[in-house]
Design a protein around this nucleic acid. Structure first.
Lengths: 187, 187
DNA sequence: CGGCTAACGCTAAAAATTTGCGTTAAGGTG
DNA sequence: CACCTTAACGCAAATTTTTAGCGTTAGCCG
């Protein structure tokens, strides 16, 4: 059979989760700059060559781990109304992404070129917003444009986290959301 | 004398410019992933240890080169009116940053932790916008809030470049600018 | 001009990465 | 269920990259 196959279960999967777990553990106690592939290999009981063959290099591995961590485990909380749904989600999003691990994940995701890690992880955000939009519509609310929400609310938050040019206060995030909601109402 | 000194002229400066030039040349013809410190050292006629001692590692060197490239050489063009000034500047900004070298510079700048490379380079953008604002005021126009311009216009552009989730067309950039100008007029 | 020392070059040692080859085990087939 | 194919792994040698010690060069200051 000429089809490309990717092993999903058994040893291969066990190694992947073991390596991922090791990386997450290491990121808790040490800086990203002092983590090396041989270290990860030893702590996870895998030979370095396996890691190199499977992920290519350290930055790709870190990106892979970061994307896996950002993958949502549940839908955003339902607070009963679109405005509060959006605010709750954005505040939590800003909180997570501006934390030390959040900034680290962002950097890792943006530092990889293979596998479109950045695209996949911003898709998570898009999907969450889409969920909120559909939820609003099913309540009879007017809904909102997801792309516009990203431009007006998400993009500034990410920008300030990445460039560190501004404190990301709760009030500021709230103002972004309310500014967006007003724009929706006006349109 | 106990004071820390940094050599500015002579050999040290010559080496810096030589290494920078070599890096810029290499980035034209090859991918960032295949550039190594020993390569740069050989092509620029410097020993690797000098590069390691001076810049620490490859990512710091690349960030240093990127910041130097992004440092503006002139003020943004004066088109005679605030709206067209802003549009001209943003279109050129989007063009430069979304190009291959632009994306590479962004990635390099965000991938370094020393020296606040990211902060310094977003300061360039801030300064340019501030120039446009002052120019508008001196013409008798109402001006605009620079931080708001960054949130509404610059941040979305950078976001879409980094995450690759959307085509960055001229029309789209123009719509961001006009949306911002309307917001200014309304406020 | 002469002293001081930051910054460089050279070299050897250490660490990381790549590569070849044999082995293990996942997943499909008869 | 036993067998076959081959993706994925482990091991170890070869290669490359990075670090560190030490002597030398050349800015900068008095």
């Amino acid at each position: 059979m000429a089809r490309e196959m990717v092993r999903q279960g058994g040893r291969s999967a066990r190694i992947q989760s073991e390596v991922h777990r090791t990386v997450r553990d290491m990121l808790k106690t040490m800086d990203r700059g002092e983590i090396t592939v041989p270290m990860i290999a030893e702590k996870s009981g895998v030979t370095p060559s396996t890691i190199y063959r499977r992920w290519g290099d350290l930055s790709e591995l870190l990106a892979d781990v970061a994307v896996a961590r950002m993958r949502p485990v549940a839908d955003p909380e339902d607070t009963g109304a679109m405005g509060s749904d959006l605010e709750t989600f954005i505040l939590q999003y800003a909180e997570e992404m501006s934390s030390k691990v959040g900034r680290s994940m962002l950097a890792d995701v943006l530092g990889s070129m293979e596998g479109n890690a950045a695209g996949r992880c911003c898709q998570f955000t898009y999907d969450h917003l889409e969920t909120l939009r559909e939820r609003a519509l099913s309540r009879g609310e007017s809904g909102f444009d997801v792309s516009e929400a990203i431009d007006v609310v998400v993009a500034p938050i990410i920008y300030h986290i990445l460039f560190g040019d501004r404190e990301l206060t709760t009030d500021y995030c709230r103002s972004l959301v309310s500014s967006f909601l007003e724009k929706c109402a006006g349109a």
